[in-house]
Amino acid sequence: MKSFTYERASSPAEAAASVLRVPGAKFIAGGTNLLDLMKLQVETPTHLVDVNGLDLDTIEPTEEGGLRIGALVRNTDLAADLRVRRGYGVLSRALLSGASGQLRNKATTAGNLLQRTRCPYFYDTAQPCNKRQPGSGCSAIGGISRQLAVVGASEACIATHPGDMAVAMRVLDANVETVNDKGDTRTIPIAEFHRLPGDTPEIETNLRPGELITAVTLPKPVSGMHVYRKVRDRASYAFALISIAGIVQRDGTGRIAVGGVAPKPWRDEAAEAELPKGAKAATERLFAGAKPTHDNAYKLKLTERALGAVLSEARA
């Protein structure tokens, strides 16, 4: 691990100011992803701003009938919150399907959105990777790509967003609230939060330098069957090969977002319009323009079948 200086932030704006001021500085909250990457020197921050002491760890109702989830609310607490279990089951289910009990106790709401890809070439500092070292090339293209993206990727990068929580947040139309060094706040819809790689895969979100996430808000609950179906290599504690976050009605209409297939949670309203026609029609639309590799083309069929199971469950 490279050496770094460390400070405990005393306010969100001050934390943002510190990260903006010190070149190579980063926020640290749960640390479960950042420290993993620092040990491998994939991440080499010069300064860490510990935000754990900030008062951002509560879940409050909003005036619109939704919830405001503090950036530091741990995954365990978010999944177990009774309001989330009753009104946003897809979110509880997504969180509980991710990581291990130990990690969920530490990992935060904001940190989960910002977690880096698990592309093996991103982790291996002996290999070229445009995300880790811009301009060095992509080892995944033509390499082992079984877990990687089938849609939304580019010639520069085929990494996926690895998370589960963000997929549920996408289907719930969440909004990300932030603050900058001057104390100015803004709201970013989750659909616009993560970026597609294009030719700058190292820039993964639309956050500005030093901008700190303070909360994620959910609109009021949407009724219907809330489901998170995750397909993975092990029954527990594994990243998704593909996952489906859905809120589906008995008549087969609804909304779905898919995880494990793209650099961001993948949702397409045009594909949702096809849902009443069945999983095949909806999946075809969802994956319009997909460019799977030989190794990961299975994800298209797997998604269709998993979606088929979700739709049958909703109709039952």
């Binding site: 640390g31 479960t32 530490k106």
Partner: peptide, 24 residues
């Protein structure tokens, strides 16, 4: 954080002690 051999209970919650800094 993959094996759990380092698990400790901090403020009543189990965590991977290898994925957190002592200064935190």
């Amino acid at each position: 954080g993959q094996c759990g051999a380092c698990t400790m209970i901090v403020d009543g919650r189990r965590i991977n002690s290898c994925l957190t800094l002592a200064v935190m």
